[in-house]
Every structure is written in C-alpha cells, then in structure tokens.
C-alpha cells in the first residue's frame, strides 16, 4: 500500500513538473530550430509541435543578435532598469525597514499600517495617480518614470522589516553603548549581519523589475526606452521565428540568479517573522 502511495505521489510530481517545465523546454529547443522549420510548424501549421528540431542551428541567435543588433538596446534597457531599481530599493528599504522594526516613535504602527495598505493595493489602482504625478513632475517618457515608482516599493520595506524583527535587540543595545548614531549601528552592525536577507531582497526585486510590463507600457512613449519584456508582444507579430531565442536570452539572468541564490532566498524567508 505504501509503495503504491509513493508511486502515485511520484507520478503526480513528475506530471506536475512536466506541465511546468514543458514550455521552458519547448522555448529552449525551438530557439535552436531553423526559421523555415519554425514557419512550417508554428505559422503555417503543416507539421506538429516538437521538442526535437530537424536540424539544430544557431541561426535564430545569429539573426537576433547580429542581423537585428538593435535588440540589445532593449536588453540593456532592461538591465539598466533592473540594476538601478534594485540598488535604489536597497538604499531606501534598509533604513526604512530598520526604523519600522527597531526604533520606537509615535505613529510607527500607523505608518506601518499605511505601508501594508499600499502593499495590498493592486498595482493598477495606483497606476493613474502615478501617471498624473509623473506627468506633473515632467518625468513621463524618461527612465525615471520607471525607476522612481519602483524604487520606493512598500513590499521591499515590509519584507526587510519582517527580517529585522528577528534581529536580536540585545545586539543593538550593546552597540548603543558604543555609539548613539543609528546610521552607524545600521551600517556597521545590522547590514553586515543581514546580508542574506538583503541579497534575497535584491534577487526578488531584480526578478520583479526584469519582468516590468505595465509601467513602461503606460509611462513610456519612446520605444527606444522600452525594456525587453515589452518587446515580446511586437516580436511575436513581426518576427515570430526569433521569439524563442529572445526568450532564452531574456530568462537566462533570472534563472541563473535563482539557481545561484536559491538557498539564500529560502533561508532568508525562513528567518522572517510573520
């Protein structure tokens, strides 16, 4: 009976994994397919879907990266947005989270409540006020219209605050004997100890920013400022045979980050007080 249960479980796991992995494997295998075969299979529909191309070729990558070298404008836009937003998020979220977790002051809970309310709101609710604000500041259609709203993310502050709650108060009290400066305590004691949590926050923020869709679509009119995530819709219409190779290039950094730092993310999230 136990054997049967394990077998059923195994089958379920394999089935679930196959469902989740199939599109990714399909994208990777299709990226090595020739443009002609791609058209025959997926545009004209003369042949069925396959995971094994007739001939493995790097032609798609060549076409994407050499013949359409302007692809890199969008790629580096994505990199720029993701890196700047991640860096700014850390700079903003670390002190804010520390103050909300460890410093007592009047209205702290109210402020936290506001953070949670904003965090719980669907993104689309704040899209229009954000748009009006950015328009009035003259930041629409600039990279700052993407970076600034994302850098002051309430989720990042909340996530780090939960980690800082688990940080022992005794260490901070001991540090207070040496210095009265909160900034010194934060930079010299708290940040070095909280590196895994900050790293986890950076990875989550990077992945989130790498996949930005709505904000650039609404706030940017100049296509040259578009991130790669926004290019796919047009790419499918105009150059469908290059979509797979572009997708592989697109998902690679996030996949590498996940495989490299998955232990970081798991352990940091585990230490957070919920």
């Amino acid at each position: 009976m136990r054997r049967l249960t394990s077998a059923v479980r195994l089958c379920f796991v394999i089935f679930s994994a196959a469902i989740f992995l199939y599109p990714i494997i399909w994208i990777i295998s299709t990226s090595f397919m020739g443009a002609k075969e791609f058209n025959l299979r997926y545009i004209t529909g003369q042949y069925g879907i396959t995971l094994i191309p007739w001939r493995v070729t790097f032609k798609q990558y060549y076409m994407l990266m050499v013949e359409n070298y302007r692809f890199f404008i969008f790629f580096w836009n994505s990199v720029l947005y993701a890196f700047i937003i991640t860096a700014m998020t850390v700079v903003v979220a670390v002190p804010a989270a520390f103050v909300l977790a460890k410093i007592q002051f009047r209205g702290r809970d109210m402020l936290l409540f506001l953070y949670i309310i904003i965090m719980m709101m669907p993104f689309q609710v704040t899209l229009v006020p954000n748009y009006i604000q950015l328009r009035d500041l003259g930041l629409l259609n600039t990279i700052w219209s993407i970076i600034l709203p994302a850098a002051f993310s309430s989720f990042s502050v909340f996530l780090l605050r939960q980690y800082f709650l688990s940080f022992p108060d005794q260490i901070i009290e001991s540090a207070r004997l040496e210095t009265n400066s909160v900034i010194n305590i934060l930079l010299r004691i708290v940040v070095p100890v909280s590196k895994p949590a900050i790293a986890a926050l950076m990875i989550v923020t990077f992945a989130e920013c790498w996949n930005l869709i709505e904000q650039p679509y609404i706030f940017l009119a100049n296509k040259n400022l578009y991130p790669l995530s926004l290019v796919f819709a047009d790419l499918i219409k105009e150059l469908p045979e290059l979509t797979s190779s572009a997708a592989v290039i697109y998902i690679t950094p996030v996949c590498i980050m996940f495989f490299l730092y998955k232990e970081f993310i798991a352990s940091s999230l585990g230490k957070m007080k919920w």
Binding site: N68, R70, V231, D234, L239
Partner: peptide, 10 residues
Amino acid sequence: YDEVNYFGLK
C-alpha cells in the same frame, strides 16, 4: 528594398 521591423531598418 527596405525591410522595417521592430528592431529597425534593414
């Protein structure tokens, strides 16, 4: 002839 796509002109 010119071929214009998302990534510009070829």
